[in-house]
Design a protein around this nucleic acid. Structure first.
Lengths: 370, 370
DNA sequence: TTGGTCTGAGAATACGTATTCTCATGGAAT
DNA sequence: ATTCCATGAGAATACGTATTCTCAGACCAA
């Protein structure tokens, strides 16, 4: 006999709580709670009775109430700056999958890179009691960093390093990737190599550029020019036109990411009537899905979005659990994917296309009329 | 003198509650609550004192606790099936913005179109007490529909109609769009027109196809063929090859969305060595950002993602508020954007390019070394 | 048989806020 | 001056669950 008997269900109809289940199963509310938090300290037969009652009533635990008392919402906030770059769409998908597998949910917000806007968004997430935050491609103000520290909310920077070594970050090996791009172009015999770079106020952009310059230096080369194009299609296109204004024209361009590389290629082809890779070789960074499309067939450095998402998730969960991870700055190697947008040096081979199982299964259903 | 004085703050350090604020301001906890829910029934000077105390302590209301008692989480769930189609990336961004402006937050989940998986994802969201759900491009099982009805959780289908007229949906005018595609191609003098269609188990796909067929019929034409290509790039490519196997080849193809149209164009160009639009005209549906890229310069029907997102948000909020909206099936007109991937009939003009203000501001910073 | 440990489940409480209830105060109306 | 209502704020309670505390009974050893 429980105290629930005297409480008529006064809440919204259809809203069934652990008390209702308890009443029907003839047990106390804590017992119901124990069953649903898989607390071992409940006898098998009682547990069965509770589960049956729950099923009959269609009970599902209210995660808000649970979160309120445990202090953990099992929600993590995801802040994104760009969504026109498809790399981040892939990132969302992989992060969502990875975190879901770990029992977490994602709250997404788009914020421009203005520090002020990011701050507001993050504050909002804090109010929602997120357990942790992933900031993809957004910069952090020092004020914000401090506030998150105070609030003891762990966060991970995804694809955006930061000078501050105490911040947890997951990136690809940007310096190394930039260097390998340079080596590849140098091996291809290019000598007038320009860089349409990522935003130089982001560490990603700087590291790729620094690696690229180092790679050129390894081969006794200097860049023809480097132009900060802010990860923007339009600016990258303008930069490309700029590069070809003078008489000393590039024979190769390394772009700070694929998104800009596409703009570079199109400006070369359709604006300047040049041939890629005949006249100019182009190399990108990311290997988004479109990079393998025949229109671009872009040679690029693959950032493994899935592995990066896995790493970021694991890292963040560790931080939430209070475990100091072995490393809080994770760099994933990026692989050079050789396609046809850049001259292939002797001895190098085109990367084989990944076989797509769906393609074989593609048996479209056709109907010829009549 | 309040009862708070006797309660030492025993919760996690840094966790400041309305009780703490109350104690410091010398008022009761309900008064603090009233100030932060902008309840008018609190005198100005007290309110000021409370706000000051809150600022000094860095207090921010716990939205979980608030939600628990109000029964409204101000969170809405967003379920997506595809993210490789950039239309949905745009949709996320616009939905996020629109709902944020209305004071809501978004919980995102990717679910394949398997009914079972969608059900699980939605159940999960219900547990999280979302106030409403937007299902983008995913189908609903009848069981799920019923359960959401029972749980009294409103939902809106975004870009995916449903036969059941009682379900709230926001789509573009798919039938009309399909018909206009047909009219355009017919006006261009094409006679052997094929359709690489969207998934025929989705109403979107069927409506576009039906409109397309009606539009051909308006011109006394019949389709050369229609092939269900499931919104898949690979299947669309296979379908295109299939269409060109025989001797009676299409002179125009209408694709069920841009994502497939790109695959069609590339298969024509790089697989079949045909010219677009010289040999074959191609029309798409969506007008994603890439459609305006010079590589494709795709003639297509623009689904205004922003307006659709606004409508879906408004509709859902109305449903949550319990107001029966005037219409629960919203169709947004889609505009034909004439570019160069399809022959332009006499008398028609290419749609002017939207002027991009950023392009003018693009003054890349260059540095020539040395 | 008695004492002690262990097990399982109910009672009580906590989480942080919103809301209802209650009541003191003060001004207006008579 | 007395009654009445409006106003504003504190006391009490609720939201739905997890957790701590408590205790009855079972079981074993002596």
């Amino acid at each position: 006999m429980t105290s629930d008997r005297s409480d008529p269900p006064r809440s919204a109809p259809g809203r069934v709580t652990s008390h209702d289940v308890a009443a029907r199963a003839g047990v106390s509310q804590p017992t119901v709670s124990r069953v649903f938090s898989s607390d071992p300290k409940v006898s098998p037969d009682l547990a069965k009775r509770v589960r049956r009652a729950a099923d009959e009533l269609g009970y599902r635990p209210n995660r808000l109430a649970r979160s309120l008392i445990t202090g953990r919402s099992r929600t993590i906030g995801l802040v994104l700056a760009y969504l026109d770059n498809p790399f981040y769409a892939e990132a969302i998908a992989h992060l969502s999958t990875a975190l879901e597998a770990r029992g977490y949910h994602i709250m997404v917000r788009i914020a421009s890179n203005l520090a002020e806007e990011v701050d507001g968004v993050v504050d909002d997430m804090v109010d929602h009691q997120v357990d942790g935050i992933i900031l993809a491609s957004v910069s952090m103000s020092n004020a914000l960093t401090g506030r998150l520290r105070d609030a003891k909310i762990p966060f991970v920077l995804f694809n955006r390093g930061q000078e501050d070594l105490s911040l947890a970050t997951v990136t690809s090996a940007n310096f190394d990737g930039g260097r390998r791009a340079a080596h590849f172009l140098a091996a291809g015999g290019h000598t007038r190599i320009a860089h349409v770079s990522g935003w130089q106020k982001s560490l990603n952009g700087r590291d790729r550029q620094a690696g690229f310059l180092a790679g050129l230096a390894d081969n006794g080369l200097e860049p023809l020019d480097t132009i900060d194009s802010h990860y923007s299609r339009d600016i990258a296109a303008a930069a490309t036109r700029e590069l070809f204004k003078g008489s000393f024209r590039p024979d190769a361009i390394f772009a700070g990411n694929d998104h800009m590389a596409f703009a570079v290629i199109e400006t070369l082809r359709y604006g300047l009537k040049l041939n890629v890779p005949g006249d100019v070789s182009v190399v990108g960074y990311d290997d988004v899905a479109m990079a393998s499309w025949p229109s671009f067939d872009l040679t690029t450095l693959r950032q493994p979005a899935r592995r990066m998402a896995e790493s970021a998730s694991t890292l963040l969960i560790d931080l939430i659990a209070g475990q100091a991870p072995d490393r809080n700055r994770i760099e994933i190697d990026s692989e050079l994917i050789v396609r046809s947008s850049a001259r292939i040096p002797p001895g190098w081979k085109r990367s084989h296309k990944p076989d797509n199982p769906r393609q074989k299964a593609a048996t479209p259903t056709s109907r010829r009329p009549k």
